[in-house]
Nucleic acid binder design. Sequence first.
DNA 1: TTTACAGCTTACGTAAACGTTAAGTTTTTG
DNA 2: CAAAAACTTAACGTTTACGTAAGCTGTAAA
Lengths: 147, 147
Amino acid sequence: MSKEKKTTSDSSISRIADELDISTRTIRFYEEKGLIRPRRTTGNQRVYTPRNKARLKLIIRGKRFGFSLDEIAEMIGMADADPNELEQIEKSLKYGDVKLKELRERKKELTLLEQDILATREKLIKRKTELEITGSSTTKGEENEHC
Amino acid sequence: MSKEKKTTSDSSISRIADELDISTRTIRFYEEKGLIRPRRTTGNQRVYTPRNKARLKLIIRGKRFGFSLDEIAEMIGMADADPNELEQIEKSLKYGDVKLKELRERKKELTLLEQDILATREKLIKRKTELEITGSSTTKGEENEHC
DNA sequence: TTTACAGCTTACGTAAACGTTAAGTTTTTG
DNA sequence: CAAAAACTTAACGTTTACGTAAGCTGTAAA
């Protein structure tokens, strides 16, 4: 009976773009790639539900970890994938598991990267202190290698 | 007195490429960008020390987190930056700190992403179970939205 | 020594992920 | 109701991060 829900929280593409700090072009691009599929008004303009917005956030988050859009698509499921197809569900599940593993791998690497940066930091500070103490005439040798 | 060290562990570009599972082109490209600067033989061929190799690993690791090569360069320091320049050191330190913060931010988001995928997983499993129980005639309504 | 392979530089090609007009439609607002 | 703001599709432009091929040189093995 109540088919049209003016949920108020639904918003236009530019509002969403503002809120998520991305361009409208980017949002449309993600739609082109099949990552989202917002409803349209009678005038063919895009309408985004909070659900759609959450999905966009998810995409953005995935991107920050170096995943390509294609990878993200497979991770969170294409917007036009039929959720009634068992086969499709199985596939998504399997892919999700693989990605979870990858994700945890990266979690470890993240720590390693952090340590690398910290190590570089230490060396820089040491070198800095050296320079500050010895004044400025310490051009010993021609060792041109550093971290 | 002993200037030339044939450290045996030093290796050619193709060996390194193999070991790190990247192309020689990629390695040369990183050099073009100023990220590494290996020594050369008298015949002008590139020689990579373990140190150089470690640096490459670091670059690769950074890339896996969606950092651009330019960002990585600033994070770990350009290969041709003069380490005697105090100003340069200060700059690198500051940038490193910024990146450390970013990195920790991402660490948190990584967990969020993980949870998102787990949530999707749960829903998929639920849906799957539903489908398996009801046989195949559950086209209730036209709810065409999903995670 | 010769030959074949690995490496070097130079340079054009390409895919991904948008940016940027352009030209027309819809919706909002004075 | 008409102007202005927001939206639409379409298409070409741009940057990043390499791929690939050409043409030459150095180097290891027969």
